[in-house]
C-alpha cells in the first residue's frame, strides 16, 4: 500500500502571488493523491486573500485539505475565509478529520491549527495570570482535539496536519528564544496517541524539514521558505517502488523558475 501525499504551508497568498504555484500544481495528479496545505494560506486572513487561495488551489484534480494558520486569523474573518475555501472545494480542518479513498487505500487526515507553548522541560505552564492560563489552555485544547480526531478516523493510513510544530526538531535554524511561539509538545503527544504515519506542519520559516516525535512518528516541516519548491511529495507505505517515482523528476527538473 502506497499513498502519495503532496504538501506545502505558508504560501501567504495575495494578488501579487496568484499564478506562481499553478504550473506546478497542474502536475499534481501525476505524483500525488492529495495536497495538504499546512496553514498561513493568506497574509492577513481577509476574504479577498482567501479568494486568491481559492483561485490558486481550487479546481485541482486531486483533493485539497487544509488547516488555517495564525496569519489566516489576523483580520478576524475566519468564517468568511473558510467559506471561500470550502466553496472552492477545499476541505478545511480544525479539530476534525476526513477520510479519502486513494488508489493505495483509505487516507485519514486529522487537522488543527495548533498553538505555541514550547517543548518538554522548557514550556509554558497552566499557572498564574489569567492571560498565561488562557495561552496554555488554548494549546492544550487544540492538542486534545487533534488527538481525539486522529483516534476517531477509520482508515488505512493516518496523517496529522497542523500549522504549529509538534516537535522542536523541525525548528532547528530558528532562534531558540522563539520556540515557544512556534509549537508545542502537546501536539506531538496527541500525534503519538494514535497510529499516525506522518505529521505535517508549517509556521517555522527558518526551520528544517525533518524530525520525529518522541513516539517515532515522522514529522515534516513543509513551510514554503523551508522546502523552496511549490510542494513536497511523500510516498508513504510499505511497497515503495523507485520506478514509480521517476516521471516527477523528469517533469519538475525541466521547469524554469527565475
Amino acid at each position: 500500500m502506497v499513498i502519495r501525499i503532496a504538501a506545502v504551508g505558508d504560501v501567504h497568498l495575495d494578488e501579487d502571488v496568484v499564478g506562481r504555484f499553478r504550473p506546478a500544481l497542474e502536475e499534481l495528479p501525476e505524483c500525488a493523491d492529495v495536497l495538504l496545505l499546512a496553514g498561513d494560506l493568506t497574509r492577513h486572513g481577509t476574504e479577498a486573500e482567501a479568494r486568491c487561495v481559492a483561485e490558486e488551489f481550487g479546481g485541482l484534480s486531486v483533493p485539497v485539505v487544509t488547516v488555517l494558520g495564525n496569519h489566516d486569523h489576523q483580520c478576524d474573518q475566519v468564517p468568511q475565509v473558510v467559506k471561500v475555501l470550502e466553496d472552492a472545494g477545499i476541505t478545511v480542518l480544525e479539530g476534525n478529520g476526513v477520510v479519502l479513498d486513494c488508489a493505495g487505500g483509505r487516507l485519514g487526515i486529522a487537522g488543527v491549527k495548533g498553538f505555541g507553548g514550547g517543548f518538554a522541560g522548557r514550556c509554558a505552564s497552566d499557572f498564574g495570570e489569567p492571560e498565561m492560563k488562557a495561552f496554555v489552555r488554548t494549546t492544550t485544547d487544540s492538542a486534545d482535539r487533534l488527538g481525539a480526531a486522529l483516534r476517531s478516523l477509520d482508515c488505512d493510513m493516518l496523517v496529522a496536519l497542523t500549522h504549529y510544530s509538534p516537535v522542536p526538531d523541525t525548528l532547528a535554524g530558528e532562534p531558540l528564544e522563539i520556540y515557544p511561539f512556534l509549537g508545542s509538545y502537546q501536539l506531538g503527544q496527541a500525534i503519538d496517541s494514535a497510529p499516525t504515519a506522518l505529521a505535517v506542519h508549517g509556521h517555522a520559516h527558518a526551520g528544517t524539514e525533518r524530525g520525529t516525535t518522541p513516539g517515532g512518528v515522522r514529522v515534516r516541516n513543509v513551510a514554503h521558505p523551508v522546502i523552496k519548491q511549490a510542494y513536497s511529495v511523500f510516498h508513504v507505505g510499505d511497497q515503495l517502488d523507485t520506478d514509480q517515482v521517476s516521471p516527477i523528476g523528469q517533469s519538475g527538473s525541466q521547469r524554469s523558475w527565475s
Binding site: 502519495r4 515534516r220 514554503h224 519548491q229 517515482v245 523528476g249
Partner: peptide
C-alpha cells in the same frame, strides 16, 4: 523570492 517550481524528487517513507 522563494522558488515555486514543481519538485524534482519525492521522499519515500516506508
Amino acid at each position: 523570492v522563494i522558488r515555486a517550481q514543481a519538485p524534482t524528487e519525492i521522499e519515500q517513507l516506508p
